[in-house]
Design a protein around this nucleic acid. Structure first.
Length: 592
RNA sequence: CGGGGAGUGGCUCAGCCUGGUAGAGCACCUGGUUCGGGACCAGGGGGUCGGAGGUUCAAAUCCUCUCUCCCCGACCA
């Protein structure tokens, strides 16, 4: 039996000054966590208890499809060299040296470690499929930890990895995870949705994210109210309405027009009396050369992006199109040097664009798919105060390539059904991802197939942020007095509040009610502190326990009050019927 | 990393501009009165004012450097 009077539950009247989001404020105020440093938190009694419940659910569900491992958090450099990520991960990877001077790092994730095991141990297709998982601390030197437990440098992750002999097998493993994740998030009481995700620089493979709507989130989710379409902003697209093309002027060939002082899209469009939709937006960007040594060194490279005049560039999409390269806006001087054009009048004509990303000597020209098939557009003339009409992509200039680079905006038509799209912020609690052969390839994992031929196993990886489940649950359910958790993940299901412990009858009754609820298998916290009732009620409201039993003056009538935290509805229940009440409202006690 | 803000008992903050004995509320300890929504009275403990250097007779306060934390932007569970 847990007695509040003997526990360490340091509740705070006021939120710490540096907490902004609800979950952060309440986790601290309710005594769940304390901060150690930026992005590092200690989980106290209530916090750890709740996380343990989350992990128990995750474990129970994962055990139905996979096998639990526990891998080291400390990894030798060689492991990460093998996959190439020792350099790729840059500053995000925590690095250290052992006493002998050997390089080590703290695992941000465990693809390498798992693949290493697979590489050494898996020999035959007969051993496949495999699903291996673990629940373990991950370390990431985030550039900016934030929002309490939402983005931290050390956190618990359930990560799993699937190994299959072929695509069909991967599909099965992926489906299993998807279904399991749904069960996990359902059991944790989260209101989530599954969205198509940006699959990062590796591209191609399928990836979905499990999101919970909350203004505290860091992700933008685009969704359709009419159909099921939902995607990450980095991935989302929308239907393009047809644009009225301009009639060709003169002989239909590119035609320079004088546009004195007109630089922006809007100015030029207004000046020429056309819609921005008929204008090409030209963005000059730069890939900075790496300062790395030897093999990895590269030179800076210009990238020009063409968008429809009224469209916005999505940097994540651009980065994907550039195989993961980051860009920055080009400076005016750089534009002048590279393209002999004044900034503001840059256009695609007359420049020798590279034929592919590997063609490093020339600048890259990427054109958004919204411009593919368009005609008679207007762009800069690479000359002060001049623009060019009658430009048709593919005819008047040859881009390096076309790509979907456009950011979806609120109200754009859904790509499936055409209804207006909406955009919401959300937090990612899980991610499932078809990895493909990336690690099998780089780390040289091979098995023999039916025909005795060596093939690479195909992999999937799947993650759940443990703390984020708690955080999302709190973001989902809080008010000015505190928060309430779904009973399945609350540190206790019921708090029994003895309103006045100096009243013998109340004290004894509270004690016996707590006792019998506990015997019935519920997690009960008995508030037996010598405090005034107000203090206890405030604390009970604060700490996230979904039900409260008030044991007060009505004990003389053999009655107590049960208060549901979420609705604040209170109901008198006879003491004899208290266990039944919870059987009806909570189901049978889990520990029976 | 770029931009903005903040560091003063455990917590929330005042004091700083205009240098002169370090404060309030809450929390904590003791005694008493209380006991259904963060009680009251009396007494008490606790702070090198983030750190270093400088200016000054004198620095929480002015100057320089530095560390830490938070927020906004590029990454991710």
């Amino acid at each position: 039996m847990h007695r509040w009077s003997q526990l360490f539950i340091p509740t705070l009247r006021e939120a710490p000054a540096d907490a902004e989001v609800a979950s952060h404020k309440y986790l601290v105020r309710a005594g769940y966590i304390r901060q150690l440093a930026a992005g590092l938190y200690s989980y106290l009694f209530l916090g750890q208890r709740s996380l343990n419940k989350v992990m128990a659910i995750v474990r129970e569900e994962m055990d139905r499809i996979g096998q639990e491992f526990y891998l080291p958090a400390l990894h030798p450099r060689e492991l990460w060299e093998a996959s190439g990520r020792w350099t790729v991960m840059g500053d995000n990877l925590f690095r250290l040296k052992d006493r002998k001077g050997a390089d080590l790092c703290l695992g941000m994730t465990h693809e390498e470690n798992m693949t290493e095991i697979a590489r050494k141990e898996l020999r035959s297709y007969k051993q496949l499929p495999q699903i291996w998982y673990q629940i373990q601390s991950k370390f990431r030197d985030e550039p900016r930890p934030r929002s309490g437990l939402l983005r931290v440098r050390q956190f618990m992750m359930k990560d799993s990895y699937s190994f299959d002999i072929d695509d069909a097998g991967l599909e099965v493993s992926y489906r299993k995870h998807r279904a399991t994740y749904c069960r996990i998030f359902d059991r944790c009481g989260l209101n989530y949705l599954i969205i198509e995700a940006h699959s990062g620089a590796m591209g191609g493979s399928q990836s979905e994210e499990f999101m919970v709507y909350t203004p505290a989130g860091e992700d933008q989710v685009v969704s359709c109210a009419s159909c099921k379409y939902a995607a990450n902003l980095e991935k989302a697209t929308s239907k393009l309405e047809a644009v009225q093309e301009l009639a060709p002027e003169g002989d239909g060939k590119p035609l320079e027009v004088h546009t004195p002082g007109q630089k922006t899209i809007e100015e030029v469009a207004r000046y020429l009396g056309v819609s921005p939709k008929n204008k090409i937006k030209t963005l000059a960007l730069m890939i900075d050369g790496s300062t790395g040594n030897g093999a990895h060194a590269s030179t800076s490279r210009g990238v020009v992006v063409l968008m429809r005049g009224d469209h916005q560039l999505n940097e994540a999409k651009l980065s994907t199109a550039l195989a993961g390269k980051e860009t920055r806006p080009m400076q005016e001087e750089e534009i002048r040097q590279l393209f002999k054009s004044p900034a503001g009048f840059l256009g695609p004509l007359g420049i020798d664009w590279s034929k592919g990303l590997d063609d490093v000597a020339k600048p890259i020209l990427l054109v958004d798919t919204a411009l593919q098939g368009r005609a008679n557009l207007i762009a800069g003339a690479n000359k002060e105060d001049y623009h060019v009409k009658n430009i048709t992509p593919g005819k008047d200039f040859q881009p390096t390539g076309y790509a979907d680079l456009r950011s979806v905006a609120t109200g754009d038509p859904c790509p499936n059904c055409g209804s207006p799209l909406r955009m919401d912020t959300a937090v990612e609690v899980g991610h499932i991802f078809k990895l493909g052969y990336k690690y099998a390839e780089s780390m040289n994992a091979r098995v023999l197939d039916k025909n005795g031929k060596e093939v690479m196993p195909i992999m999937g990886c799947y993650g759940i942020g443990i703390e984020r489940i708690l955080t999302a649950a709190i973001e989902q359910s809080n008010d000015e007095n505190g928060f309430w958790l779904p009973p399945q993940i609350a540190p206790f299901e019921v708090v029994v509040t003895a309103t006045n412990v100096s009243d013998e009858k109340i004290r004894v009754t509270a004690e016996s009610i707590a006792q019998s609820l506990e015997s019935a298998g519920y997690d009960v916290l008995l508030d037996d502190r010598d405090e005034r009732p107000g203090v206890k009620f405030k604390d009970a409201d604060l700490v996230g326990i979904p039900f409260r039993v008030n044991v007060g003056k009505k004990v003389t009538e053999d009655r107590v009050e049960v208060v549901q935290r979420s609705t604040r509805q209170s109901q008198d229940v006879s003491i004899a019927a208290i266990t039944d009440y919870f059987r009806q409202n909570l189901g049978p006690g889990r520990r029976t």
